[in-house]
Every structure is written in C-alpha cells, then in structure tokens.
Amino acid sequence: MKRREFLGVLSGAVTLPLTARAQQPAKSWRIAYLALLPGEDTSLAKPFLERLQELGYSEGRNITLLYRSADGRAERLPQLAAELVQARPEVLVTGFGTLAAKAAKGATGTIPVVFTMVGDPVGAGLVASLSRPGANVTGFSDLASEFAAKRLQLLQNLVPGQKLIAVLGNPDTPFTALALQQVQTAAAARRQPLAVFEGRTLDEVSAGIEAAIKSGAAGLMTLDDPFLLSARENIIKRVAAARLPAIYGLRDYVEANGLMSYSMDRPQTARRAADYVDRILKGAVPADLPVEQPTRFELVINLKTAKALGIEIPASLLATADEVIE
C-alpha cells in the first residue's frame, strides 16, 4: 500500500485546534509501521494514527509516516523491516502478531520498536521482562492472566456441565504455549475436560477440527495467532457444519460469521501504542517503558450465526455482551 493511500484512513480523524496548528515544531519525525496482515491500515493503524493526531502530530507538519505490509506473507517481514530501518525512522511500530515484532527487532538494535499485539513477548525473546524490557523494544501484550479463564467460562454458558471442550492452536507460535497453559489451569480449576488439537497448516486445521468432532467435543476454543486468523473462514465453515459452539480470541471471526469472541479492546491498545510513541519522541527509552497487558476486553456475539446453528444464547450472556450482531 502506498503511503498516500494509508493516510486516507485519517479522513475521519479529530481535527486539531487552530492554535495547535499554528505551533510549528522545529523537528519533523519519521514513524514507521510494519504490518503482517492485509487491512491493518484500517484496523489497528487507524486508531493509532487518530491518537497521534490528538497528541499534536500530523502528516506534512511534524511527522512523516512510512507503512509496509507483508499482506499475510510472513517471509516478507524481514525484508520490509530492513527497508523501514534504512529510512531511519525515530520509532518503528509493529502491528498484529509476534512475527512482525521479531522482524523489527532483528532489523535494528538501536531504533525504538513498539509492538502492539504480541501474546508472549518474554517467551518470544523480544523483551527481558514485562516490567523491564531491557533494550530497544517494548509494547503491548494481548494476553492477560484471567483471559483464558473468562473465555472458558463464557463457552460453558453454551456447553453446561463437564463436557469435553476442544482447543485449537498453532504450536509454532510462542503465544500458544503460554495461552494453552492458562487454559489448562483454568480448566483444571473447573474440572473441565479438554482435548488439544494442532493447526500449523490448512490441512492440519481441517484435520484438527474433524478430530475434535469425532472426539465428541461439545464446544471449541481457538488460541488465535496470525495463521489461524488467516484460516478463519475455513475454521468457521467446518465448525458451522458440525453445529459446534465456538469462542474465538478476535472479533474478526465474529465479523466473518463466527459465533462469539472475547478479546482485548484492540483499538484502545493501538491508541496506547501512540502514547508510547509520543513519550519516546519526547525522550523516553523503550527499556524504561514496561510492556502493558490488556485491561479492557469486549464480548461480541453473532446472533445471526447462533440462530443458523440452532444455538440458544442465554439472556444473561446477551446482557453482558459489548456488541450483538443481529
């Protein structure tokens, strides 16, 4: 995507007061953004840029924005990260997933890097610890300790009793190991039986879901990563064919006719990333900025999908939803 096209997402952004526009700073900053998935310019990057504008930054006045997207092809990330580093930005921001953040870290040990959605930044080797990142990289994790337990509880509203729950994840993603550990801990506390299935490729995803169905699973939970997100249409189609209640970790699934998602407030996280960029431009260093974990979550339910699957959503669950798609 060309930079001019990328900046078009700001058409609805907040307009700065005339007094703010009149103050012309002496320096113009370069901010780079590295995306793995297509469409991040309108999902994560848009609220990020809107928040930057609220903080007093605007294209052509005091910032230049550089955007690169791998369009879902992870193998392109190192090259794109290197291109952005060659442009010598003051800050390099990465979008969804661990792979973009790792590509950015691999490309530079000096330029500040702010990641926006990494499940296990310590396990992935991006930071030394959440409280003290220790180098040029910091950002925002999309996993909180109570997250898995809450998702399991929500699914149990549709699958009452100690019926088998299937868990689908990509073991090649560092996030999966940590998320699975939390799910298993929550399940053990609830005496909830689990069966874990792996999905590294489309064939494995299909085979995993079929195996889950044959095992007698009464519900499905996904441990989402960029690959499973890209395979969401395949997952939703197979789950729907089996009339299997499922909960996902990203609202993208529900928007693609998945049943239910419980996820972090991604626009809010993107806005917080802009706050970190602002602090770095004003002199803060990533090593002193702790990795933040999400504090705001949203439950989204697709009532149309529920009706199509013949699943009745309890009124108590609908009442707690942040959004219901009808």
Rank of each mutant, 00 (worst) to 15 (best):
residue 1 M to Q: 01
residue 2 K to N: 10
residue 2 K to L: 12
residue 11 S to L: 00
residue 12 G to Q: 11
residue 14 V to M: 14
residue 23 Q to K: 08
residue 24 Q to W: 01
residue 32 A to G: 12
residue 40 E to T: 01
residue 51 R to F: 11
residue 52 L to G: 02
residue 58 S to P: 00
residue 60 G to K: 00
residue 61 R to D: 00
residue 62 N to R: 02
residue 63 I to A: 01
residue 66 L to S: 03
residue 68 R to S: 08
residue 68 R to C: 12
residue 70 A to R: 03
residue 77 L to W: 07
residue 77 L to Y: 10
residue 78 P to F: 13
residue 78 P to Q: 07
residue 79 Q to K: 04
residue 79 Q to C: 01
residue 79 Q to S: 09
residue 83 E to K: 10
residue 86 Q to M: 10
residue 94 T to N: 06
residue 95 G to H: 02
residue 95 G to S: 11
residue 99 L to S: 01
residue 103 A to Q: 07
residue 105 K to E: 14
residue 105 K to I: 08
residue 112 P to G: 10
residue 114 V to Y: 09
residue 117 M to G: 05
residue 118 V to L: 00
residue 127 V to A: 09
residue 130 L to S: 11
residue 131 S to G: 13
residue 132 R to E: 13
residue 134 G to Y: 08
residue 139 G to I: 05
residue 140 F to Q: 12
residue 144 A to M: 01
residue 147 F to H: 09
residue 147 F to Y: 12
residue 165 I to E: 09
residue 169 G to F: 05
residue 171 P to R: 03
residue 171 P to S: 04
residue 173 T to N: 06
residue 177 A to T: 08
residue 181 Q to D: 14
residue 184 Q to G: 11
residue 187 A to G: 10
residue 189 A to P: 03
residue 190 R to D: 10
residue 190 R to G: 07
residue 198 E to W: 02
residue 204 E to R: 05
residue 205 V to E: 14
residue 206 S to F: 14
residue 206 S to M: 12
residue 207 A to N: 14
residue 208 G to P: 15
residue 214 K to G: 09
residue 215 S to T: 15
residue 216 G to E: 10
residue 217 A to Q: 06
residue 240 A to I: 03
residue 243 R to G: 09
residue 255 E to A: 10
residue 258 G to H: 12
residue 261 S to E: 09
residue 262 Y to A: 08
residue 263 S to I: 01
residue 263 S to W: 07
residue 265 D to K: 03
residue 271 R to D: 08
residue 272 R to W: 11
residue 272 R to F: 06
residue 272 R to H: 13
residue 278 D to T: 04
residue 278 D to W: 01
residue 279 R to W: 08
residue 281 L to F: 13
residue 283 G to L: 15
residue 288 D to T: 13
residue 289 L to S: 07
residue 294 P to S: 06
residue 306 A to N: 10
residue 322 D to W: 13
residue 325 I to F: 07
residue 326 E to C: 11
